[in-house]
Amino acid sequence: MLSIKGLKAEIEGKEILSGIDLEVKAGEIHAIMGPNGSGKSTLASVLAGREEYEVTGGSVTYKGKDLLEMAAEDRAREGVFLAFQYPVEIPGVSNINFLKTALNEIRTSKGLEPITAKDFLARVRERSALVELDTKLKNRSVNEGFSGGEKKRNEIFQMAMLEPSLSVLDETDSGLDIDALRIVANGVNQLKNETNATIVVTHYQRLLDYIIPDFVHVLYQGRIVRSGPKELAMELEEKGYDWIKEENGETVDV
């Protein structure tokens, strides 16, 4: 589904991604871990099509197409979904109208009729229940005045509504208490099937107790320095990131 080869990206002349290789197949869950500032969000943003980042090398193929050539909205229409680390508050834009517009633009791009009001509402009811999103939040302005946890749930609610093929969840666990974490993870697991894939970006191993990855990758200084099965996450939890830093030639204060 997704094939990243030698991907390099910079912002304002500063190289952040220094050659990333990653293969993701349908039905798989990949976890990307790494210390703060290692480039995880940058990778997620580049995949979603954020224009501030300049891709300086490598390639990304998604469902056989050159992803890097596509505008952000076209990627979304082709099934790429980014759950933002910091979801934006958009005062005055109703959560539900925005989702309806999004859904219908995606449908139109596929030559489908707009969803009927009835089907839309039914889907909203079903999918918001999945992440136990407070009904009041659906009608409010996008993320405006939402708590940190509500914003994250709203991201997963949107994911549930749009049914993407490739979801990139950027630190969806941060700021969640254990109950919220379980709810969000449960939502992700229920949406999981043989035809879609998920990349879970996280700083902590905690989320991976609930969303079991098929592969774990460690991103450090813009490179994937280690890949392995889910046990790698445990190892990281035990040893901490200093272990990775030392291995990569950085001196660490103990």
């Binding site: 952000a72 934006v88 633009e105």
Partner: peptide, 27 residues
């Protein structure tokens, strides 16, 4: 117009024009 908000909307599948229109209408 808030660039972050525009990107957020586009990342959900809204075209540039609709994303701008939504933010303009909200304003």
């Amino acid at each position: 117009l808030n660039e972050e908000a525009l990107f957020y909307l586009r990342a959900r599948g809204l075209g540039k024009h609709s994303a701008r229109r939504l933010l303009i209408a909200a304003f």
